[in-house]
Design a protein around this nucleic acid. Sequence first.
DNA 1: CCGGTGACCCGAG
DNA 2: GCTCGGGCCACCG
Length: 105
Amino acid sequence: MNTYTRIYAVVQRIPYGKVATYGQVARLANLTGQARLVGYALYRLPSRQADIPWHRVINAKGEISYDAFRHGDDDLQRVLLEAEGVVFAADGKISLPDYQWQPTG
DNA sequence: CCGGTGACCCGAG
DNA sequence: GCTCGGGCCACCG
């Protein structure tokens, strides 16, 4: 059970049409305060773990961070989320109170 | 081992 | 609204 494995496991638990913040994923993975690792893990996302809905992970501001990884697909993540029914505000932000994943168990 | 970097987050000014 | 500084860990050279 590696650090990455925990992160991937949590991301996989994010339900359809919902989103989670890096900090939230880190917390659920028992890696409180290590949100950067989540970003790094997804950045180094292995193709064999392609089942992971990486697009459902956003930052604490409810925005998407493509800054460093966009390799041609500007709003790929946005498109994927919109395909799941997630609505973006005019600012390009997501309403966390409405779409943030709230794990009950 | 050390230094730099990173899909981040929080607090202060 | 923006910039700076600190923090945690993993990868790369």
